[in-house]
Design a protein around this nucleic acid. Sequence first.
DNA 1: CGCAGACCATACGTTAGCGTATGGACTCGG
DNA 2: CCGAGTCCATACGCTAACGTATGGTCTGCG
Lengths: 190, 190
Amino acid sequence: MTSPALQTDRTRLTPRDWIAAGFRALAEGGAPALRVEPLARGLGTSKGSFYWHFADLAALKAQMVALWQRLAEEEITASVLASEAEGRGALQALIGRISVAPPAAYGGAGVEPALRGWARTEPHVAQAVAAMDARRLAVLEGFFAQAGHADPAQAARLFYAATLGLMELRLTTGADMRAGLEAQLDALLP
Amino acid sequence: MTSPALQTDRTRLTPRDWIAAGFRALAEGGAPALRVEPLARGLGTSKGSFYWHFADLAALKAQMVALWQRLAEEEITASVLASEAEGRGALQALIGRISVAPPAAYGGAGVEPALRGWARTEPHVAQAVAAMDARRLAVLEGFFAQAGHADPAQAARLFYAATLGLMELRLTTGADMRAGLEAQLDALLP
DNA sequence: CGCAGACCATACGTTAGCGTATGGACTCGG
DNA sequence: CCGAGTCCATACGCTAACGTATGGTCTGCG
């Protein structure tokens, strides 16, 4: 990457460090864990650092949402481009991407559900999530149409709903994401 | 019902009133909205009343979780009993129950997603949700087995995941719960 | 070397909420 | 009518966090 020091160099912090810490806290403890002083303690620093890099807590939250939107959007375009395959092959490629826990270094696997929970309290986040849902559904619908499904919109809704649900179930029961998605695809594309 | 005054009689409050208010707040603003003084303001009273009926905030939360467990369990047994039909008929009856927003007067439609979000921060809730997931999956598996599905466990997982996902999507896009569930059933039982 | 700016620590003042304590008010049986 | 119990209001001390203000430290550049 182009960043000189991607993680902490033990002394100076960058805004990205705070954002990464924010995603970790979000995945761990949900939206109420996004507080300045606990984050600072977690990073072994003080809030003086935080308020140097950010105007206030809302600024960090806004940047987190913006980053999530960028990453999720990149996931979509990457999926579209990577799947030169037509029809079913594209969907299987997509499954590979989804089941591998997208955001990786930032956040991790639990970010998406936590962010959806966060959306319940902050309208700004709710709007971002709603927009992303619509976006993803549109792409999925295209895939299912290519694959020759009779009702691509319905199939997209079901596939996406199952994806969200399996994410949830991975947290309570330890459901296997990939196997579930493949089975769902088999059910929808007989 | 057997309750003498189910809602407020404008002066005296009961524990159930506080619990109902708690579910409304939970559905509205998520777990962080479960605070004593805001709840009191919402009920037009003071926290003196709250601490008369409950030892502390944890007590209210515990009773809320307990009540949710009872109601959800009743939903399950009602579903099992109500569906004297075998196989597919039982599942269709179940869809009718699910899509109608179970908890009704308490809470409402948004309670389940909010509670799942709440589970992320409080282990007590997480355990209750995990147990309920396992319980529901077991019942669903039985239904799919009766309906003659080849892999009832997988089908149950997918149907339940789709249900959870459609709940989520109802909040962002205004997805139609019942139609989605019926379509999912068609996909799983060809 | 020495200063300027970037970065962080600390000490405030303020707010929101928790739980307690204490003193009403209202009700009902005697 | 009156006391006992039920239910609520208010005031208090406490804590955690917010955002500000101010000073300290380090680093590179001139």
